[in-house]
Every structure is written in structure tokens, then in C-alpha cells.
Design a protein around this nucleic acid. Structure first.
Lengths: 130, 130
DNA sequence: TACAATTCCGACCAATTTAGTCGGATTTGT
DNA sequence: ACAAATCCGACTAAATTGGTCGGAATTGTA
């Protein structure tokens, strides 16, 4: 249940897209050199970030990625949730718990609400300020 | 990165140990019927909870488990951390990040500190009150 | 038009973690 | 002696993560 390298690479990629971006597009090649992982793998992560509307891209020469909106409007939670598998939910919350009258729905919901609250309280802009 | 069934079963087991316990010892057989999973698997989880000093046990006839201390002094975070693998930490925090001058140490540390704070703010007693 | 730079896409594989089983050994009260 | 329990290590299966590969499609530029 740690943040896996998927989430870690994703956060780092978003950080560099934000930092180097502006009007420029940032390429996977640049990101892979900055982060230190393969282009092939990063590509998968960028695809997820794009599907979640956190970045936009153009193909072809001079193409690459940039943020879909200002860094202050992109939360750490949004980034992690789109990369990690079913992050911060559980059977007892999403309705698939098979226990009759699952007695723990409320506490699990509370746990996840609080964690998501923490993550959505921090934005990409907070990473840039460091 | 969801709370896996390990964590879920563990929280539920602790809940029932707290609820049925008091002076009594609660057995794995009871827990498995209440939670709906195998005795064999629960046994592994109880072993971890014991190693973390969250429960105490006696063997033999009339044996079983009970809390090592009052429910109000056992946090959700303590339960989850002892069951899940390296929960809420990451390379960039624990010193194994190989990036030179990892620029993200602070933000990752902040994320984990906040999440652990949330989890350690809730105790087993909060589960009992539901 | 050719070409290079780039994202995009699906199939595949390896490593790790999670989930679960099994066969006993040990302890304890009756 | 026996039954009810925890304890323990080895094993397997399933799922997820981490990563690779080959090529298709798009775009700017010479």
C-alpha cells in the first residue's frame, strides 16, 4: 500500500511538465532523462495522465505534453488516483463487500474520505514551490 | 494502493476481538465465521497483529486472542501498518531513492506524514462506536 | 515528397506482492 | 488421554506492478 513507482514517477513527471512547460511541450525523452526511467514505461503513465485530462499532448515534430490547466488546479490526489489501481477505496466502501449489513462501511468510508481530503489539499503548485 | 483484504480483514478482526473480548479470549474460529474468511489465512494476520503487540494470546483449550490494551489506545494506523507491506512510505522518503539530490523528498514526506496523521487520529474505539 | 521527431497502441513478459492452503508441532484445560 | 486452541514453515495460485517491444499514426521542416 505504499505509493508505488507508478505514482512516484507520475508525480515527478507532472512536476517536470509543470516546471519546464509553460508554452513549451515537454517530451517523454526529456522526462525519462530527468526522472531516470525508460521512455517506454513513462509513455504508459503519460497516457493515463492524459486520459484523466491532467495533461494535453500534440504528436509529431516539436510535440510533447503540457498541463491541461494551471498547476494550482491539479491536486496530488487527482494524479495518484488516475495512476494507481483503485487507490483509496475498498470492498466495504464501493458496495462489493458481500458481508450482510457490512458493519464497517462507515468507518472505511471515513478513512478514505480523510485520506483523499489530505491528498486533494495539496496541489502540483505545492511541489513547484519546494 | 487500496487497503487490501489483508488490512480489511485485520481491521475487522481487531473490531471483533475488541467487541467480544473484555475478559474473554476470542478464537480464530469465531473470527473466521464472523468475517467470512478461512481460519488458515486469518491465523497469519493474527500472528502479525501479535508481533506488533496489538493483541495477546493464550494457547490450548479456552485460548484465543484479546487486545493488549484498551481499544482507545490502538490506532487504525498501527493496525494497517503492521499488516500492509511498507505502507505509506516510498523510496523518496526512506532514503533508498537513488536520484541525486532527490527534489521530491520533502513533498513525499509531507504526504505520508499527513496520511499517517489521519490514520493515527482514529482508534479502534471509533470503530466500536458505530 | 521524404524524413525525423514524436505520441499512440496493443501485445507480451518478468518480478513482486497478495491471497490462500496444508501438514504438522506445541500448549493447555478437563 | 484428549480435544481445543495457537503456532510455524513451506508451498502454490492469483493479481498487480514494472517493464519491453514492434510498429502505426501524426506533424513540422527541409
Amino acid at each position: 500500500m505504499k505509493i508505488s513507482s507508478k505514482g512516484r514517477y507520475g508525480l515527478q513527471a507532472m512536476y517536470y511538465v509543470a516546471k519546464l512547460g509553460g508554452e513549451n511541450y515537454v517530451t517523454i525523452n526529456q522526462l525519462s532523462r530527468l526522472i531516470g526511467t525508460s521512455e517506454d514505461y513513462l509513455e504508459k503513465l503519460m497516457a493515463k495522465l492524459k486520459r484523466a485530462d491532467l495533461v494535453v499532448s500534440t504528436r509529431g515534430n516539436n510535440g510533447g505534453y503540457k498541463l491541461s490547466r494551471p498547476a494550482v488546479n491539479i491536486t496530488i490526489g487527482q494524479i495518484l488516483r488516475c495512476l494507481e489501481n483503485g487507490i483509496f477505496t475498498s470492498k466495504c466502501v464501493d458496495g462489493t463487500c458481500t458481508a450482510a449489513n457490512c458493519p464497517h462501511k462507515d468507518i472505511f468510508t471515513l478513512i478514505y474520505t480523510k485520506i483523499n481530503g489530505v491528498l486533494d489539499d495539496m496541489t502540483l503548485n505545492d511541489m513547484l514551490k519546494e
